[in-house]
């Protein structure tokens, strides 16, 4: 059953077509953002990324949001998921349902309904753009949940914790020093995917009139088209590096497992 010649040629041709479809818009961004008004090349638009005060501020805001969201997600999700596995397995379905719910309740719906909640947040906490963290944690939940769940399924958390408990460890030690180190790659994946999502978030910020990176880029698009394209290319590049790193973390985990068997 050797593949025929026609099939091999068709295959290569199809792959090239797919490659072109995905590559051309990206190359167009690169070309567009380095155009000079006179018709030559210029790096002006890319230099604006660090020169434009609005843009720099937005980059810092989005990075801070990403950091806070990862922190919040880890604090909220990791102990809960481990605890459910170790002590309250009957809550597994509930927690899974809640974590995956944001896939069914789109960000657009949440933003429509969250005005009341946010007026309290603004009143009780602050009205800084950083309060977006609260809703971003919900937004990244499904993806983080899957990453951590995959890692948790890969180890026998119950047996590990029983072993540790019988050796005299308390619950905090069990979670912090036994389980978490074993699901480290999953936690890292969850963090990466959260950062990538927050850096690309536009819907909620723009509809609540907060200025994060994507909102500022969209505004810039109206006045400085080339700078805005350069900025979105840079954001994409950064997110790609993160998500690629993520796929390597995942692969390292699998590779390790395969070596053992």
């Amino acid at each position: 059953m050797k593949p025929s010649y026609t099939w091999r040629v068709t295959r290569v041709a199809l792959l090239l077509l797919f490659g072109a479809f995905f590559l051309v818009p990206l190359l167009a961004m690169l070309d567009f953002s380095t155009r000079d008004l006179g018709g030559g090349r210029s790096g002006e638009a890319w230099l604006d990324l660090v020169r434009d005060p609005d843009l720099s501020a937005a980059i810092i805001t989005s990075l801070l949001l990403a950091l806070l969201t990862v922190g919040g997600m880890l604090v909220l999700l990791v102990p809960t998921m481990i605890w459910v596995r170790l002590r309250v397995p009957r809550a597994t379905r509930l927690v899974e349902f809640l974590c995956l719910l944001p896939l069914t309740i789109p960000a657009l719906v949440i933003v429509v309904g969250m005005r009341n909640v946010y007026s309290w947040v603004n009143y009780l906490v602050s009205d800084s753009v950083l309060t977006l963290t609260f809703v971003y944690v919900v937004l990244v939940l499904p993806y983080s949940y899957r990453a951590i769940d995959a890692a948790l399924s890969g180890i026998d958390a119950v047996t590990l914790s029983e072993a540790a408990r019988s050796l005299g460890a308390g619950w905090f030690t069990v979670i912090g020093r036994i389980v978490v180190p074993n699901i480290w790659s999953g936690v890292l994946s969850a963090a990466f995917v959260s950062v990538a999502l927050v850096l690309g978030e536009f819907t909620i910020a723009s509809l609540t009139n907060y200025e994060n990176l994507q909102v500022v880029i969209a505004l810039l698009g109206k006045s400085e088209a080339r700078t805005s394209v350069a900025a979105s290319a840079a954001a994409l590049l950064f997110a790609s590096v993160l998500l690629m790193a993520l796929s390597y973390v995942g692969r390292g985990r699998r590779a390790r497992k395969e070596n053992l068997t």
Binding site: A28, D31, G200, Q214, A218, G221, S232, A233
Partner: peptide, 28 residues
């Protein structure tokens, strides 16, 4: 890995990529 990135790649960036390619003064 590229699909993993591009599936998440909606939003402003994607719109701008296509404007840079097929907009009024787009490359193509």
């Amino acid at each position: 890995s590229v699909s993993g990135v591009l599936a998440q790649f909606g939003g402003v960036t994607l719109a701008f990529a296509f404007i840079a390619m097929l907009g009024f003064s787009g490359v193509v």
